[in-house]
Amino acid sequence: MRHEIKKITKIVDEVITFCMCAFGATNTEVSIERAPGEYRVRFLFQGVSINTAELSDLEKTMAVGRNPELEDYYWQLAGETESSNELELIAMMSDSATVEYHDGILNIALTRKL
């Protein structure tokens, strides 16, 4: 796969930008793990302010699933602006995504197969 590392860093850039701008995250931790056959990216955001509807929309958006028909063309758009988000594109670049929120802490875990 070409540009694989750059795609991972674009994903990280987009998710962090979004959660800091839209949800006001005050503390951020990121973990990128190269496992056999896949990348695992975990985000932990603290100080997040998010309501039930926003969480539901986020979960729905991240559930789109891998879409190579669009990913190979549009991936360079991820992480490019702070005024609008490309979360749907991030979901299209991920094979699986889980979103968990509890007491101001937002966890997002993404898996991207190679």
Binding site: W75, Q76, E80, E86
Partner: peptide, 14 residues
Amino acid sequence: LPPLASHMLRFHDG
């Protein structure tokens, strides 16, 4: 076309 189209996206940010 394909490599150029993907690259040109950054010119106008979508």
